[in-house]
């Protein structure tokens, strides 16, 4: 039987492993398909978190998610109680005039209250962190929009095959 004692003076220091020596090649693709205020955030928050961990991240905005990158709408996304039982309010209330505006106002206040930025600011941060924003060709055609209508950080309008090609081997999230 052997015993060993570790001399603290010569023991290796405990240093966090930031994974610099082991490139994982991890990539993340996030498809944003919703234009509601509450459904815009999950993709943006996850993209921001992934970038902060050194993960190459691509976002593809399609259908209603196009509102998130359309200049005229991106800062005006709304939240509705309708069809959302998680508000625990009577559904009939959500359909009354002014309720969507009120619910949106309250949600914006809550989001700002915990220091989370607006949708355009989140996009700005994602681009500054090296994230890639792509717009869906079919959505652009349907809505008669071109690159001049879109947030400046969007790299290009591409079709679905292009996105699949660009994100070869990536983990994929559909929101």
């Amino acid at each position: 039987m052997t015993t060993s004692t570790v001399d603290p003076a010569t023991a290796p220091a405990i240093v966090p492993n930031f994974g610099d020596d082991e490139p994982t090649g991890r990539r993340l693709a996030i498809i944003c398909s919703k234009g509601n205020l509450d459904m815009a955030y999950p993709g943006l928050i996850l993209a921001n978190a992934a970038l902060g961990e050194g993960v190459e991240t691509h976002l593809f905005f399609t259908f209603w998610g196009f509102d998130m990158i359309t200049k005229s709408r991106m800062d005006d996304l709304k939240f509705t109680m309708l069809g959302n039982t998680a508000t625990h309010m009577p559904q009939g209330l959500g359909g009354m005039p002014g309720m969507t505006a009120m619910a949106t106002h309250m949600m914006r206040k809550q989001i700002a209250g915990i220091g989370v930025p607006t949708v355009p600011e989140m996009l700005e941060q994602i681009v500054a962190s090296g994230g890639h924003l792509w717009a869906c060709r079919m959505s652009a055609d349907m809505m008669h929009l071109d690159e001049s209508d879109l947030y400046d950080g969007v790299e290009a309008i591409i079709n679905a095959s292009d996105f699949i090609e660009k994100t070869d081997g990536a983990q994929l999230l559909f929101i």
Binding site: F18, D20, I45, N48, G54, M122
Partner: peptide, 29 residues
């Protein structure tokens, strides 16, 4: 933000915290 990614590559928030002798940040954004 761009500069922070250059100064502290890949994981700037955590690397900055480590060098500054602080815990990792808890906030999401």
């Amino acid at each position: 933000t761009k500069d922070l990614f250059v100064l502290f590559p890949k994981k700037p928030a955590k690397k900055m915290a480590y060098i500054a002798g602080l815990p990792k940040p808890h906030g999401c954004v």
